[in-house]
Amino acid sequence: MELPMWLADILAVCAAQNDDGIDNAEENAETQAFIRLIEPEFFSKQFLNFIKSDTLKVNLAPFAYYYKIVAKWSYMFNDTELVELISKMFVARASEINGLSYKLNDQFSGDNQEFLNGLENFEKRLFKMSHLSYKDMNNWIAKG
């Protein structure tokens, strides 16, 4: 069954509290948790391996809020490994974004186009902001 993230979050936490409870071994046995979270597709081994192999080719556009979901997920499961991997990926992608946002005309050719289309929402915002800032600077230098 598919649930929205917030609902799954609450249900999973409730269940965890039941586990923490002191003398309810019976209850523990029968309802271990309200729900069991199944790894979504984008946290599967396959997908993570894909990230490891080529960070820049990963298309995050279908998961509009990937980094937020990662943060929530790793909060629930305390998944340090995942966070490390995703942080690394973010740094790699961010520096690519920065490089592209600096160039004024090279963005929409071939691979670059593909990369930019595969950006997640936050990354898109980052790209735009960085681009505006560089543009302001270039205009200022050219002016006068």
């Binding site: 980094y67 990662v70 942080s87 740094v91 920065n98 960085s130 800032s133 600077m137």
Partner: peptide, 22 residues
């Protein structure tokens, strides 16, 4: 500094959110 500031602050904030989640 100002030129790269928006980029750096936003990125570091994102990294902070990620790492603090654990």
């Amino acid at each position: 500094i100002n030129e790269i500031r928006p980029f750096i602050i936003e990125s570091m904030n994102q990294l902070r959110i990620l790492s603090q989640s654990v």
